[in-house]
Amino acid sequence: MFLRKTLPLLICFFCGVFAIIGFFSAEGTTINTYYEKLAKWNSIIAAFAMLLGVGNLLRVNFVKISRNHQDKVYCAILIVSLIATASFGLIGGVYSSKPVYYMAPGQNFDLSTIAVTYKNENRKIEPMKIESWSADTGSVSLNTYTPPTSDFNGVVVLWADYMNKNEAKKIKVELHVRKRPAYEGFLDFFKNKCAYVFEYMIKPMQSTMFSLLAFFVASAAFRAFRAKSFEATILLVTAFIVMLGRVPIGTSIWPGFAGISEWILSTVNMAGSRAITLGAAVGATAACLKIILGLETRYLGGE
């Protein structure tokens, strides 16, 4: 009982009171510093809790496979994908979108290998003309970078100068001058795969799910805006005016739609929004108080 109820409640009380004191303490004071650390602990605990989730995910899916469940193939795909993606990230590390190049000491770097492209107005990728190069150390021409000395080791910042709408602009490129052990290339393989999974698999799938919203908004609006009652009719008319005010065709029909739409959003809608937000804030404060004082224990299980 002590470990299941009393101790969590005590921890909750002390953390809650400490967080309140920390919030009202001046920046730079010891209490405020520890208050900020407390917030970081939350992230650390959440990161460790991720292992719990992964463990559960693996267990549930392994059990399904072992029981010859009808969805066992999906379970297998999930486990393989999980392990593959985690391996890419764990071995290769975090992928940086910053352009980083490497060269061995005592060599010259061929700048023509750095191809810079951009998307034009038609979203086509085109090569961009580099006018000149500059570097924070060493010497540089249009095609070649030479480190200051033959035994120079370190990071060089290269700037590619280009023109955009008659304005000179620069792109920063990092060049690491050092001997690269072979294992780093091996790690790069995983790093690139990790980035590949995120860029070309996860992101498109997320976008696909998100794009479903467009259709769902239409179907939900169709149901909600049927003029079944007086309130529903007001909703329909208001929505119609706001919609017309937000699209070009509405203002073409009558320019006043834009103003009415803006008034509905900034006055009528905002009043409702503030009322709900204030109510929710009071509710949340009361709930926090109950939790800190141990009056609310249902989240620990039981009454």
């Binding site: 910053k98 352009p99 060599q107 770097f109 750095i114 492209t117 961009m128 792109i171 690139n192």
Partner: peptide
């Protein structure tokens, strides 16, 4: 010549 490259470049502006 001993140089390797990561392929992504960010263009600002």
């Amino acid at each position: 010549a001993g140089q390797t490259a990561e392929t992504k470049i960010e263009i600002s502006g």
